[in-house]
Simulated scan of single mutants.
Amino acid sequence: MKLTALTFLLAIATIVCKAQETRPGPQLPPETGEQFKVGIAGYTFVKFDLDKTLETLKALDVHYLCIKDFHLPMNSTDAEIAAFHAKLKAHDVTGYAVGPIYMRSEEEIDKAFDYAKRVGVKLIVGVPNPELLPYVEKKVKEYDFKYAIHLHGPDIKIYPDADDVWNHTKDLDPRIGMCLDIGHDTRNGKDPVADLEKYHSRVFDMHIKDVTAPVKAGYSLEVGRGIIDFPAMVRMIRRVGYTGVCSLEHERNMDNPFMGIAESIGYFRGVIETTKE
């Protein structure tokens, strides 16, 4: 059942009251105590610099960021990487993964794994050409990283949904899995709640968004305004014991996305609060 506007507002009011009554000093984010974390995918800020990105995360009390290379280029020096992490730390933000990174050759795979190692993360969100998956598996074994293939719905030919990623990876090293983008999965006619249940052992990252319809023409909009059943999704996240990050990837009004980002994070946290048992 989707949250009504009234239920959502009551949930937010409950969160605020609880924070005021029981949380002296700096307030903890409402999802504290869950096995999973709430974050933001770096692509959300493709038109903004790192300072604006971190200012937004701080305002939202979000502490996890999937790093995109427009904020930290792949040819960054060790000194530049150290300065990047220092800036994140000053905002109480952890860069937990890099990507999505497209990989169309063994050389590009080598560069991506070296980049992730120098950045200091052990999760790569990637989009490798399918014929390169045996080489990805070799690198995963060499580096002991997890590799999450980002699915893209009907927009590109490869990896349209969770079924497709599973079929490509089920016989590979178990550290190769998926970034379950619930919006793109839905746009390819799939049920992301059911797919999380089926494939949770290979779901290493999640992109949270809402969409208007289960077809290619369906477009992204603020979480809670579309067709995805978020209470069912949050309950499934708990049921399967997902311990990764649920990162908002906001792709609407990207010249000025900030109100939509805040609405989406607020709604998602409202669902987290109201589905607790």
Rank of each mutant, 00 (worst) to 15 (best):
M1L: 00
T4W: 12
L6K: 14
L10H: 00
A13S: 14
T14D: 13
V16D: 08
C17F: 14
T22W: 07
G25K: 04
P30R: 05
V38C: 08
G39F: 11
T44Y: 07
T44M: 03
L50S: 08
D51H: 13
T56G: 06
A59F: 07
Y64I: 02
C66Q: 14
I67G: 05
K68S: 08
D69P: 07
P73G: 11
D78S: 12
A79H: 14
H91P: 02
V93A: 11
I101W: 13
I101V: 15
S105R: 11
E106P: 07
E108S: 09
I109G: 03
K111V: 13
Y115F: 15
A116K: 04
A116N: 03
N129K: 14
L132A: 02
L133D: 06
Y135F: 13
F145Q: 02
I149N: 02
H150F: 10
G153Q: 03
D155R: 06
V165A: 07
T169Y: 01
D173L: 03
P174A: 00
M178H: 11
L180P: 15
L180N: 09
D185R: 04
T186L: 12
N188L: 09
G189K: 04
K190V: 00
K190M: 13
P192G: 04
V193E: 00
H200I: 00
H200V: 01
H200K: 04
R202N: 10
V203E: 03
M206R: 01
H207Q: 10
D210I: 08
V211T: 10
V215N: 14
I227Q: 03
I228H: 09
F230I: 04
A232P: 13
M236E: 14
R239V: 00
V240M: 05
Y242G: 03
T243R: 09
G244W: 06
G244P: 10
E249D: 01
E249I: 11
E251D: 07
R252Q: 05
N253L: 11
M254P: 01
P257G: 00
S264K: 06
I272W: 12
